[in-house]
Design a protein around this nucleic acid. Structure first.
Lengths: 197, 197, 197, 197
DNA sequence: CATGAATGAGCTTTCATTCAT
DNA sequence: CATGAATGAAAGCTCATTCAT
């Protein structure tokens, strides 16, 4: 008669999302429900107690990915001097990223496009206010509005992820340094920068 | 029973690739063979005279996309002053792009990863030599090696494509200007740049 | 741990059958256990305390439907003059009926076929004795045995339910009158009957 | 290059419908696609070259059933004296009939309901004109409009099919005679009729 | 060269049923 | 008594691919 703890339901949901994340990262968005279930050690029927459809799982995954990115940034951007390092840290792990699957999907799926845009707006806001503080302190170029610089930072972040796939030399070691150099150029810091590739 | 003109064969292959490109752009890599055949006005059996498998079609498509990008750049980069405009022109049309599908796929498909890297190396080479000429002429920052700047340009290009999906305001109008501002900053041109967003 | 009042058990069973009846009427015999549980506000596990299987529920439903029909007739058929009106009253409500599902199912399910036949025999008996009384009183045609007329009445009843599905004009308004006309003709009443359709 | 004979396509479609008819008759509308394919000796994928969905197959089947009924009647109803025999011949074979599945389904599926009604209207028309001729010849009761009598005949036909399921004695032997007796009473023939059951 | 009939494995999803709590 | 988590088989349907014509 007692309803089971809804926390447990949520916990299981997270577990399943974790399994799905691993399979999607490994196989792309084509990863089958069966594969996800095997990863999670769960029967196919059971998965549907937690998600109404495969699409819902995918949306959940993308939400997860985006939440993670936001969490990283929203920590504490007290000082504009931390910006380069902070931004560089957004730069994820070694394995395949779902970022490009997300971008690709958002071109064809309006719900996902919308979620991506809301997330990006939030990120931009966070970056822009840190930048504005930096501009006030004379640490950041103020010939451009903070919002414009924030947008450019977002672009540079995605581009840096892409370059790792394009250029194994960058991926090997200089990735972080290249990103820092790019950030500096966007924010108009005049550091010595980036060693030869 | 003479063999048909190989030119005609190649021409038909291109046509089929064009149809496939349209379907892949519209539906993503999940686009079915049947869908491509319908687009091309051809029977499924016939398609297999030109491509041994769906994967081969996908590779052909990605090759096409990459070739197009190269063709754009290799036109004539006589003067380094043309670089910003040229680079900005790489910036494709309005519809969905296959770039992110390509990047996503390259994370899981070694053959495609390889092709992407070879293409990127070629692009980098082209950009680097134009940059080097620009540096010699004193038009481009020479505190960094041309190769490093070329890599950064490639990153910025991909990032600019991504930002259009992230930020509809940018996609609406300022896309090109933002890319130019980014290019300027990478090459250390000191233009007035990018209007407020 | 006393056993719960068996009356209460029976009461709950009826409630569940009621919910099932509504779902089966609305969705046909394909209605899912989950759907029935939702209608009854009960968990699937709980349903199985009352019925060992879906088939048992279906049989219970059909029993219900048949019991209802019998109850109608067995009230009091004192006078044969009441027969037409009584028979016409068997004519159910507006919503979808389970009669045809029952007939269809009885062609493939021996248990249900058997139950249908036993019920029909009972109905026939009830009708036949009323008819016999009518014949004795000179109110009903006695050139045919009462049993034969009873069988014909049963046929006419089912046929009248079918005609409502076949002909929306009849369903709209003349349904009852048409049934009365048919009953009269079977019993050889010579009324003016049925208005033009 | 030559397109395959479309007749062959239609022929195959008929074959598949035949197989489906057998399975639906034997198992009811729950018969699975796999079962139908096994019956037809065809792979599941192939079935979908001929029908877009299971529902389409079901509609095709019902169409078949209805067409057959119409064909029977529309043969030649020259003389109203043939009506009883003709009508009685509509009375199909021994195996399970899809009539009740059709009636049940029509309560929940608008497309099928519509088809059933159009078919019934057509049947009614055919019967009514034969009846009208009978009335003109003084062979049929003319105190009721021909259309009303036709509707009653349709009801009586369905009811007679139902009674075979309700009463095995009728199904055993007297089915045809009972139907004839009912038809006579509807048309007001005054024959000796129906022997005791 | 060109068709489209045909396959069969695999897909996502549904569902009756069981069982620990 | 009552829940809902969990199962696993089977459902309808899709799809890359093959092949006789």
């Amino acid at each position: 008669m007692r309803t089971v703890n809804p926390d447990q339901h949520e916990k299981k949901r997270r577990e399943l999302l974790g399994a799905a994340l691993r399979r999607f990262a490994a196989e792309g968005v084509q990863a089958s429900i069966a594969s996800i279930c095997a990863e999670a050690g769960v029967s196919p029927g059971h998965l549907y107690h937690y998600f109404p459809s495969k699409e819902a799982i995918l949306e959940g995954i993308f939400q997860l990915v985006l939440d993670e990115a936001t969490a990283h940034l929203s920590g504490d951007v007290q000082d504009a001097r931390d910006l380069p390092a902070l931004v560089a840290d957004l730069y994820g792990g070694k394995g395949p990223s779902l970022l490009f699957d997300l971008l690709a999907e958002s071109q064809r799926n309006a719900a996902i496009a919308d979620r991506l845009r809301r997330h990006s707006a939030e990120m931009k806001q966070l970056l822009a206010s840190a930048i504005a503080r930096g501009q006030a302190a004379g640490l950041v170029d103020d010939t451009l509005p903070a919002a414009a610089l924030a947008t450019m930072l977002l672009a540079v972040l995605d581009g840096s992820k892409a370059i790792r796939l394009r250029d194994p030399a960058v991926d090997g070691g200089h990735a972080r340094e290249m990103l820092l150099a790019l950030v500096s150029r966007v924010l108009n810091f005049t550091r010595p920068a980036f060693p030869s590739v």
